[in-house]
Design a protein around this nucleic acid. Sequence first.
DNA 1: AGTTGTTGTAATCGAATGATTACAAGATCC
DNA 2: GGATCTTGTAATCATTCGATTACAACAACT
Lengths: 233, 233
Amino acid sequence: MNSTSAPEPAQPTERIPAAERREQILAAASRVFGERGYSGATTDQVARVAGISQPYVVRMFGTKENLFLEVLARALDRLVTSFRQIIQEPREAGPAATELLASRLGAAYVDLIEDRGILLSLMQAFISGHNPVIGAKARAGFLEIYRMLRDEAGFPPDTIREFLADGMLFNTLLAIRLPDIFHEDPAAAELMRCTFRGKLDVVLDATAAESTDADAAPAPPAAGHVDAAKDDK
Amino acid sequence: MNSTSAPEPAQPTERIPAAERREQILAAASRVFGERGYSGATTDQVARVAGISQPYVVRMFGTKENLFLEVLARALDRLVTSFRQIIQEPREAGPAATELLASRLGAAYVDLIEDRGILLSLMQAFISGHNPVIGAKARAGFLEIYRMLRDEAGFPPDTIREFLADGMLFNTLLAIRLPDIFHEDPAAAELMRCTFRGKLDVVLDATAAESTDADAAPAPPAAGHVDAAKDDK
DNA sequence: AGTTGTTGTAATCGAATGATTACAAGATCC
DNA sequence: GGATCTTGTAATCATTCGATTACAACAACT
């Protein structure tokens, strides 16, 4: 069903340049794909979250597959940019230099949770290795991270393995939505405290603020402020 | 399209007891769901891999969702059974007792790769946290593993975290199909050597033998031997 | 032999969904 | 102020897919 619930709100959609709209769609698609996976997501859900019509989404990106590929590329770019920035920061050499850098990169990784969908879309792509085109891009992206940790960060293989393992556990806990039951299940809380450490509150805040609700009514045109319920105009 | 390519082979499907057929379907579904995820897989693909018709699959399990839930339950059962067996094995106490047990459990985990689809189906379920019913079962299952490692294996929290992290990295490398490019990409080979260690050959063998091909013709009635191309009868 | 239960398929239905087409309302430019 | 480009939608199509229905073949039991 292509958008049952009333075609677009009362206000006709704001007219904005294509480049900007494109980024809006990518952000929306990151969240939707991150939650439901490539096959589970629909272009109509992406459209509703982005606040536009379904045909516009597919015309802007050609196909759903291509949209996913661009979401993946965008996510990888954010990750690589964030890591590279930290690696290039000046830092004193020392015996625990590698561990320090690893912990900084780990913190930066967790902070990517703010840009909702990035980490989950990445994980959804990693899980899609069976798909010939998506799988190939996912493998290439994963190995790009690996090589960056090896060649630019200078990590030894075992440090890389450990770092990636922690990252994949982090992704999995997010994807399985463990934060949702933090207050209900003691074992869940225990595991999350141990995994997220100092970043626990960041994760809980970010995941609590989520709830994309791609099923619900189309996204409102997003006023400047949420408060001040006065109707402007 | 519900099975385009010729409805069932020349030989009419062998008639076997429902319980046995049920297990066949679950095994087929584990492979298909493991490769394509819950949304990406179709009941018709499962049917073809199982060598039966699509309506039979859904009548046996009611719904696709229910089939996935049973695949998940079966996978969890295999995992828990395997772990519990090792935990209960007699072992001498010592300073490195925890590390030894962890490495045995890790080896057992990798060995589950033999029963194709188990590990990937588990991972696909973990990634489906957004789905209300599948997500709930996935969380419960994940926490069951956690509690087993804590209460039955007696692992301290950090050992559990490390163990789970290695497991999630392992799952991810399988799901992204890194073994497929072991011989093509040096970085991929490096990472896999470091991650799989002594189990590298087991993984490479198991993944090479795969290729479910749910798209191709329906599975033949599986003769006793593959060789001896003489037509029996 | 006839009845009944089990194991299976062919045919088909209806909903969902990616994609296409046709069209409209603003911008922009001369 | 008209032509043209950009930004957007409504309507609709074709396909896919889970599910349902109706039926057939075989087994088992009296």
